[in-house]
Deep mutational scan, measured.
Amino acid sequence: MDSLLMNRRKFLYQFKNVRWAKGRRETYLCYVVKRRDSATSFSLDFGYLRNKNGCHVELLFLRYISDWDLDPGRCYRVTWFTSWSPCYDCARHVADFLRGNPNLSLRIFTARLYFCEDRKAEPEGLRRLHRAGVQIAIMTFKDYFYCWNTFVENHERTFKAWEGLHENSVRLSRQLRRILLPLYEVDDLRDAFRTLGL
């Protein structure tokens, strides 16, 4: 685990949702873990991680939370803000982990979509996460503002959007929607068949 708060310049560089993210070879993951008790929730931990020694950050987080003694009788909500969406292998590990821990839910807000040039399996990884109940969305100004005030050593500076933040968020949201769209259509068809008694 690194220091509790991320350096301001590092956050702006790593999380910037630019179309061509040249040189950004690491994934950063800011997280919040909450325990839900009926209508209220309690923050248990927050911080950030990054890839280390060739190990992807998603797997580092799974190792980290596996060391906790999570009460199977309580519900936990984990929220990630990531600089890149998970690769196919990490998505598979996360989905398997969630299946083994049904009392834990995960939301992922990502700055950019990761696509490995040689495999093109990453969209299927995102669909697999979605099927496992993970809520996946692209970061918007509101999410960047929250991260800036929660995870960044900002020295009381106000978060300022860079040129193109909104447009890139919209573009990436549409792309993510197209990736997940087949799932929505299949769910709609299943509901229609059930309604018709087929």
Rank of each mutant, 00 (worst) to 15 (best):
L113K: 02
A121M: 14
E122T: 05
K120Y: 15
E117Y: 08
A121I: 05
E117N: 11
D118H: 11
K120L: 06
Y114I: 02
A121E: 09
C116W: 08
R119M: 10
L113I: 01
E122Q: 15
P123Y: 12
C116M: 10
K120M: 10
C116H: 11
P123A: 12
A121H: 07
K120W: 12
C116E: 03
F115C: 10
E122G: 15
D118C: 02
E122P: 05
L113F: 15
Y114K: 00
E117V: 11
A121V: 05
Y114C: 01
L113P: 07
K120S: 08
Y114F: 03
P123T: 01
L113G: 13
P123K: 07
R119A: 09
E122C: 07
C116N: 10
K120D: 07
R119P: 06
C116D: 01
E117A: 08
K120N: 08
F115I: 02
E117M: 09
C116A: 12
F115Q: 10
E122D: 07
D118E: 07
R119T: 11
A121R: 12
E122K: 00
K120T: 09
Y114H: 00
Y114S: 02
E117C: 14
L113C: 04
C116G: 08
D118A: 06
D118Y: 08
E122F: 14
F115G: 05
R119L: 08
A121F: 13
Y114T: 02
Y114R: 06
E122I: 00
F115W: 15
E117W: 06
F115D: 04
R119I: 01
K120A: 08
R119E: 12
E122W: 04
C116Y: 15
A121Q: 09
E122V: 04
Y114G: 11
P123L: 08
E117P: 06
E117D: 14
E117K: 07
L113W: 03
Y114N: 00
C116V: 14
D118N: 14
D118V: 01
F115M: 14
K120P: 02
E122Y: 06
E122N: 15
K120G: 08
C116P: 04
P123I: 01
K120C: 12
F115L: 09
A121G: 06
D118L: 12
E122S: 06
F115N: 09
D118I: 02
